[in-house]
Amino acid sequence: MAETTQEQNQESTPARLRRVPGGRVVLGAIVPLVLLLVWWLVTDVLGLFSSVQLPAPQEVVAAGVELHQRGELGQHIAISVQRVLLGFGIGAVLGLAVGSLLGLSRIADTLLQPTIGAFRAVPSLAWVPLLILWMGIYEDSKVTLIAIGAFFPVFTAVYSALRHVDPQLVEAGRAFGLHGVRLLTTVQLPAVVPSVFSGLRLALAQAWLFLVAAELIASSMGLGFVLTDSQNTGRTDRLLLAIILLAVIGKITDALLGLVERRALTTWA
């Protein structure tokens, strides 16, 4: 009996912690803090790595402070966020539109699905020389590459979800006089909201992945540029700074999209 009570208390502890304000944040911060501690121990205390191989945390912070004092850090962050949001927005809208078209039309599915499936298999770097040839080395080519990366997760999620919408739900909508776009926006899309947002969150992560490839296109600003420039100049501290900033900002944007997802699920799902 005592063992049962103890097990119940252990099982209820995470639930109680989740009800505490900021409880999930505290839980989520444990692993990063442990990794930071291990990083500090193996570099600054034990000296297992040289500063070229793995700089200590304070060296990475110092590199960030240096860039900030020179007025460059904020510019790098702002230009990368702008590129990601523009590319993500364009790719998400196109993915939603094309995924809806193929998910609702068997003719469009038969005509376009093989071609889109083939393009989906093309690596991101393979688009770089073609985009430079077509669009030059300016912002259009960078945003387009990010949009390509964001398109496919949204397209796949919407297309697959619409293919599995309950036919009885669709027939009920048609019985109430809904057809075409009205049927899509009133019945079918609300039915696939969870899948749509899963695709959007994958697309946002993909947009951040494609950012580095996009900023290989003759960039002089952005976190991807900091990453590649640091590699070329041997500045491992700045390289790690760029990686950490990409991870943190990517997580922040994903969390913001998660808030929108919860509101959408409350409203439509």
Rank of each mutant, 00 (worst) to 15 (best):
F225Q: 02
N9L: 15
R120Y: 14
A2E: 13
A108Q: 10
V192W: 05
W208M: 05
G136C: 12
I217N: 01
F176A: 11
G22Y: 04
I243G: 03
V26G: 08
L36R: 00
L223V: 05
P32K: 00
L33K: 01
L246E: 07
T13H: 00
E139S: 13
G117H: 09
T233W: 06
Q69R: 15
V226P: 09
A172C: 10
Q75G: 13
V45F: 07
T186P: 09
L245G: 01
G99N: 04
R262A: 13
L257V: 10
L209N: 12
T13G: 03
V38L: 14
W39I: 07
V226Q: 02
L209Y: 08
P190I: 06
Q53I: 12
Q58G: 10
G89C: 09
L202S: 13
I77F: 06
I79G: 08
L112F: 14
F225P: 03
E11H: 13
V128A: 08
F151T: 05
K142V: 06
R263H: 12
S51P: 12
A15P: 09
P190N: 03
A172I: 13
A56G: 13
S198A: 15
E3S: 14
L67Y: 07
V165W: 06
Q58A: 12
D166K: 11
W268R: 11
L104F: 03
P167L: 01
G234H: 05
G117N: 13
A255I: 08
A78L: 14
S105L: 06
V26H: 03
L48Y: 13
L27Y: 11
L145E: 00
L256V: 15
Q6K: 15
F225A: 00
Q69F: 11
P114V: 08
G95I: 02
H76K: 07
V122Y: 09
A92G: 01
Q69I: 10
Q75N: 13
L130G: 02
L111F: 14
T4C: 04
V196G: 08
L37R: 05
G74C: 08
I90D: 02
G47E: 10
D237H: 02
V84A: 06
P123F: 04
Q75R: 15
I77K: 06
L241Y: 01
G87A: 08
P153T: 00
G250H: 09
A118C: 09
T5N: 10
I146F: 08
D109A: 11
T253E: 01
V45H: 01
V154E: 09
T253R: 00
L204W: 00
L48Q: 11
D109M: 07
S198P: 07
S230Y: 04
S198F: 01
L204K: 04
V196H: 00
V248K: 10
L162W: 02
G64Y: 09
V165E: 11
R70H: 13
V98L: 14
H68S: 15
Q58W: 15
H164N: 14
A126G: 09
P55G: 08
H164V: 10
A161Y: 05
D229N: 15
V212Y: 05
W134P: 05
F197L: 03
E72D: 12
L178W: 09
I77Y: 09
Q231G: 12
M221V: 13
V122C: 04
I146S: 06
A218R: 14
V98M: 07
I244W: 02
V196E: 05
L17I: 15
F225T: 03
L265Q: 14
L257E: 05
T156C: 06
